[in-house]
Design a protein around this nucleic acid. Structure first.
Length: 520
RNA sequence: GCGCCCGUAGUUUAGUGGAUAAAGCGCUGGGUUGCGGACCCAGAGAACGCAGGUUCGAAUCCUGCCGGGCGCACCA
């Protein structure tokens, strides 16, 4: 069990013992990790919330993994015992690659849909942002014990395909512009009608532009879901029939409407237009049904802020289908604005002005590109300046993290030249007592908590921050503690610590999809 | 007009009810005959957009205002 959970339980138990079940605090009891070491490794505000004497509570709490408990300014501060920390090193070595894994997901099926850009052009920076964040969240959820499906929804029919058709045929209704459209004009067979030209162009864009870009981004989708297939398998018809059966639709002015206001939407929405064409929303409901039918208990979507208006609608649809609104989580990513020399440059596939995610990766490399987007919360309005990004990429903190990893590899390689086996015993680990050693271990054991927190609140920017903390702790340890030149016992202990740092750092980088280079 | 999001150090951002607001870059100064100096240490730099309110306690919650982004289709 994670240490924080353990401390929470101990505190709750103590409170119950002293004040009985009735003590209900106003506000949230928290177990925090204070930044100031003076306040311990963990601290709780429980006493303040309960308006009780913190010392009284502290006196009742007893545990062998705690060295001491102090009370200061109303907080109860917990100090972890050295022995507990030392033991964690062998625990990490034992768990290896699976260190950080949790069981909270209980194997529940969860579907994460991200990017899902229309096959009408290359992937832009906005797609990159949502793509990287989505990808990392799926890694986190997997690590927390969920069975995750990464899904890309492909809008391979409908209005935008027609528009693409016009564009590649170059008629007066053309909307998409750019070099790729010029190239498509050559590849798409002449004599096609608009729809066929559009479909053919979309297929080429998907295979020649989107899929390679996604591969370059280091993302692997489990499912590429075609909107068209919903029509081919009459799932659209089945869905509208189902809603009719539930009396959730009505006809008005020749169109078929869904009573979404019954489920909290601002207004009712059209499913089938007056001209008998189905709306995109109807496909979406069918798609929603399809996902739930496949057994997913939870659906997560990454959308750009420009789709915000769609949230209430989709949740309404989920409820209409008989599911709960909280089975759908929609993460709204604020848009990426392209800046050049302090001026905004409007990006649009329709004007042909945009920076593709390919270009960014070519310029700064995948690791920097990933790190760049991962550090910013989805709420941040991101102004992206390619020149600035290029200039700063050399100083990107990702190299600082990777440098720690390369250093570790170098130490271990040097050791292996002298002696091929590292055998670490509990007795050796007891020699770890330098503040920098203990501090490093404290950072190492945060990984499961980081994973758990992020799986709960989807704030993936926590991960790059943690990686920095970890690297800092290692670099400081490296400064303070010699390894190879020490006597055998201490040398083994420190090698164990170095190895467990390597594991933790690697697992953290893996979650972020960032490489762990042995040399730089 | 209504709804959502943002405004934190020179800059890019963390921090969403707790203690002295944190980090990268930049700036100033210091550190290596040593396992990788792409490193380490110290310092300067922030009335957290403004004004009220709730609370023992507010960058965080509420209200109003200012500035900015996005959304309010029988478009997708």
């Amino acid at each position: 069990m994670a240490l924080r959970e353990e401390i929470k339980k101990l505190t709750e138990k103590a409170v119950k013992e002293l004040y009985g079940e009735l003590a209900s605090p106003q506000g949230k009891v928290r177990i925090d990790q204070p930044e100031n070491a003076e306040f311990g490794d963990y601290s709780t505000n429980a006493a303040m919330l309960l308006k009780k004497n913190p010392q009284e509570i502290a006196n009742v709490i007893k545990s062998d993994f705690l060295e001491k408990i102090e009370v200061k300014n109303g907080f109860i501060n917990f100090f972890i015992a050295k022995e507990y920390l030392q033991k964690q090193v062998s625990e990490i070595l034992k768990q290896g690659q699976s260190f950080g894994k949790l069981r909270t997901g209980c194997g529940q099926k969860i579907n994460v849909e991200f990017i899902s850009a229309n096959p009408t052009g290359p992937l832009t920076l906005g797609n990159g942002r949502g793509g990287f964040c989505g990808d990392v969240l799926t890694n986190i959820l997997e690590k927390s014990g969920y069975k995750v499906t990464r899904e890309y929804y492909l809008n391979d029919r409908g209005e935008q395909i027609i528009k693409l058709g016009h564009s590649v045929l170059g008629d007066e209704e053309a909307v998409y512009k750019g070099k790729y459209i010029e190239e498509l004009k050559r590849d798409v067979k002449k004599g096609n009608n608009i729809g066929e030209a559009g479909s053919q162009a979309a297929k080429i864009i998907l295979e020649k532009m989107i899929k390679p870009a996604i591969k370059k981004m280091g993302i692997k989708f489990d499912t590429w879901f075609s909107e068209k297939s919903l029509y081919q398998k009459s799932e659209i018809k089945k869905t509208s029939d189902l809603l009719k059966k539930k009396s959730l639709v009505y006809e008005n002015e020749g169109a078929l409407w869904f009573k979404s206001t019954q489920f909290g939407d601002d207004k009712d929405r059209v499913l089938i237009k007056e001209n008998k064409e189905e709306t995109y929303f109807l496909s979406d409901i069918a798609y929603l049904k399809n996902k739930f039918d496949r057994g997913f208990k939870k659906l997560i979507f990454f959308w750009g802020a420009d789709h915000y208006g769609y949230v209430a609608r989709l949740k309404a649809a989920a409820e209409a289908l008989g599911y709960r609104k909280d089975q759908i989580d929609i993460i709204i990513m604020q848009l990426v604005r392209l800046m050049q020399g302090g001026q905004e440059v409007r990006m649009a596939k329709r004007t042909g002005i945009y920076v593709t995610i390919d270009e960014l990766i070519d310029e700064v490399g995948l690791d920097v590109a990933r790190y760049f987007f991962l550090t910013r919360s989805s709420d941040t309005h991101l102004n992206f300046d390619l020149d600035l990004a290029k200039e700063q990429s050399e100083k990107n903190p990702v190299f600082y993290i990777q440098y720690a990893y390369a250093r570790i590899h170098s130490i271990l390689a040097k050791f292996k030249n002298q002696n091929s086996k590292i055998k670490i015993t509990t007795k050796n680990l007891k020699l770890l007592s330098h503040p920098s050693e203990l501090n490093l271990i404290k950072q190492l054991i945060r990984l499961p908590e980081i994973v758990g927190d992020t799986a709960g609140d989807y704030q993936v920017q926590r991960l790059p921050q943690y990686a920095i903390d970890l690297a800092v702790a290692f670099h400081q340890f490296y400064r303070d503690c010699k390894i190879l030149s020490e006597a055998e016992g201490l040398q083994k202990a420190r090698l164990g610590l170095v190895l467990s740092t390597k594991i933790t750092l690697k697992n953290t980088l893996d979650l972020m999809g960032i490489s762990a280079p042995e040399r730089m």
